Amino acid sequence: MTDQSDAARHAAHAYVDLLERRDWSGLAALLTDDVVYEMPQTRERVRGRDAFLRFNTEYPGDWHLRPRRVIADGRLAALLLDVRVGVEQQDACVWLEMSAQGLISKIIDYWPEPYDPPPGREHLVERW
């Protein structure tokens, strides 16, 4: 395993832990200024660290994340997550791309089913 893979694996675990704890300043320190977050099922994209943090602080519900599997290869990491919102449970796959400086530069969340995005976040996302 390479040092880059170790760094990507560590960043992936930290990413989930910081989201779960709602540690926004800690999460900000893991992200590039121009991080891109995409959700293919809703065709939404959020650009920039500030918008990504705001997206998460405004996200509705009492959601919780637990990593079930993390795989890292070079500057890439993949996570299989157990996601819970109230009593509802879903699996999600998250792909992370790391910058040369070891920060997360791209996040892609894959959810099990396509869905229409909830209203109220149009000011943060672009649809494709």
Rank of each mutant, 00 (worst) to 15 (best):
Y37G: 06
P60N: 07
V46Q: 05
D3S: 13
M39Q: 13
A77S: 09
W95Y: 12
A72W: 10
L30H: 05
Y15D: 01
F52N: 11
M98L: 15
P112E: 10
Q41K: 11
D73E: 15
V16D: 02
E126P: 01
M98I: 03
V87K: 08
E113Q: 13
R84P: 00
H10A: 14
V125T: 11
A28D: 11
Q41D: 11
Y115L: 04
R69M: 07
D73W: 09
R68K: 15
A29I: 03
R84Y: 00
L65H: 11
P117F: 10
D6Y: 06
A51D: 13
D91T: 02
V46I: 15
R9Y: 08
T32W: 13
L31V: 01
T2M: 10
T2V: 03
D91F: 04
R43G: 07
T57P: 01
R68Q: 15
G74L: 10
P67A: 12
E126F: 00
A100I: 02
L79M: 10
E38G: 00
F55R: 15
W111T: 01
R127M: 09
A78D: 05
L96Y: 06
G102Q: 11
D50V: 06
E44Q: 14
R84T: 06
M98S: 06
E20P: 01
I108K: 12
D33F: 02
D34R: 12
L19P: 00
T42P: 03
I107R: 13
E58W: 02
A100H: 09
V85L: 12
R43C: 05
Q90D: 08
G102C: 08
G102K: 10
E113A: 09
A92M: 11
E38Y: 07
